[in-house]
């Protein structure tokens, strides 16, 4: 796949190509970028290498403000994620969600981080047991995890203020790696068919 012996050489070369082609196509591109950013979307996604948000959403630099962690978790006591906020995105075949399907010992750090997802699995045991296989269960756990993250976000003081003052909206999505497509999740209450939170309906 790569013609470079050292993987670092490869991305340094990749960056040179990026800088050159961007400047050739638009000589002012970097000057404009250096003035500042005004993204409309905050993307909270999984750290998984297969979902580079700007690429899969066909966006340009400056459009998505990004936070990515293991299994796109938003925990109430996590100051890292709390320093960021507006959208929530997940993906199927998530290693984090799969790991949360069992109680295998992943070491203290990952055990603690995935504890809320595992609790979610226990809370919804009855529903999950009815599903045909572990793949389906992992998908459902990933969805429940997104819903839970959105619930936590909704209680965040900065989010509450932004919702009231400027109509900030929250969306849950799942990325299907096998299809390369994003799928919008219904709001838990099923109030809005298209999942778009509406300031008028709140």
């Amino acid at each position: 796949m790569s013609t470079f012996a050292d993987p670092i050489d490869r991305i340094v070369a990749g960056n040179r190509v990026y800088a050159q082609t961007t400047a050739e196509r638009d000589p002012n591109a970097f000057e404009e970028l250096s003035k500042g950013q005004a993204p409309e979307i905050l993307w909270i996604g999984c750290a998984d290498s297969r979902i580079p948000e700007t690429t899969v959403c066909h966006c340009k630099p400056g459009e998505l403000f990004v936070h990515r962690n293991i299994a796109n978790c938003v925990h109430a006591d996590d100051i890292n994620a709390a320093s960021v906020v507006e959208y929530a995105v997940a993906h199927l075949k998530c290693g984090g969600a799969n790991a949360a399907l069992s109680d295998a010992d992943l070491g203290t750090t990952l055990n603690t981080w995935l504890h809320p997802v595992r609790e979610l699995r226990r809370k919804h045991r009855a529903e999950l047991e009815k599903l045909p296989n572990d793949d389906a269960r992992a998908v459902r756990v990933a969805e429940l995890n997104v819903h839970q993250s959105i619930d936590v976000l909704k209680q965040h003081p900065a989010v509450k203020r932004a919702v009231a003052e400027r109509g900030l909206s929250l969306h849950g999505m799942i990325y299907d790696i096998g299809a390369g497509q994003l799928r919008l999740l219904e709001e838990a209450g099923g109030k809005k068919g298209n999942g778009l939170w509406s300031p008028a309906n709140k």
Binding site: S49, R50, P52, E53, T54, T55
Partner: peptide, 18 residues
């Protein structure tokens, strides 16, 4: 938002954990 890691390093999906 101005520093999409994969775009500025020329990497595709599956190549960089972020």
């Amino acid at each position: 938002s101005r520093i999409p890691a994969e775009a500025i390093t020329g990497l595709g999906p599956g190549e960089m954990f972020i």
